[in-house]
């Protein structure tokens, strides 16, 4: 049984959530994260050296390893990888960006940000619906540096 002195101090928030202080270091699966980091950087390096097939292989490995080991990537990182051909999306090199509005009346609410990969796959962000939208990880206070 864990001693009381060794246990972290916990309290309960108003919405019924038990609050826990953050751990001092990121624990678990550190090897996998290092492997993912290495694969991402390798893929970027090979993309910049115009070795697309090799870069895509590394990025595909990265995707497989992250799914198999349940290691998450930040959305900002995932946005830079094409879901179809696994290219690293670098503007003016492997991707193009534009704002598209398909609506007849061109209402700004229908603005979409389209990031188009060289393979033709598009990432579409419905930015017009809520221009203040931030993903959970982008909202202040949700990310803690280790």
């Amino acid at each position: 049984m864990a001693s009381r002195a060794g246990m972290a101090k916990q309290s309960v928030a108003e919405d019924g959530t038990i609050l826990v202080p953050p751990p001092k270091a990121a624990t678990g699966n550190k090897d996998h994260y290092q492997r993912l980091n290495y694969l991402y950087q390798l893929s970027m390096f090979t993309t910049l050296n115009d070795k697309q097939p090799l870069a895509r292989t590394y990025a595909k490995n990265l995707d497989l390893v992250s799914k198999k080991t349940k290691c998450s990537l930040l959305p900002q990182v995932k946005r830079t990888i094409c879901k179809k051909c696994h290219s690293i999306l670098i503007p003016n090199k492997t991707a193009s960006t534009k704002i598209r509005n398909k609506a007849r009346r061109k209402d700004p609410k229908n603005d979409d940000l389209v990031i188009r990969c060289v393979c033709g796959e598009e990432k579409v962000f419905r930015i017009g619906l809520n221009r203040d939208y931030r993903s959970f990880a982008e909202r202040g206070g949700n990310i803690i540096d280790v």
Binding site: Q10, V12, D15, G16, T17, I18, L19, V20, P22, P23, A26, T27, G28, N29, Y33, L36, N37, Y40, Q41, M44, S66, C71, S72, L73, L74, Q76, V77, R79, T80, A137, I143, I144, V146
Partner: peptide, 20 residues
């Protein structure tokens, strides 16, 4: 309070990138 609590705060490790 702990009996009533429905959720618990957790900290998940995520990989960021210096490139982005």
């Amino acid at each position: 309070e702990k009996k009533v609590a429905l959720r618990k705060q957790v900290y998940k490790t995520v990989l960021g990138s210096p490139f982005v």
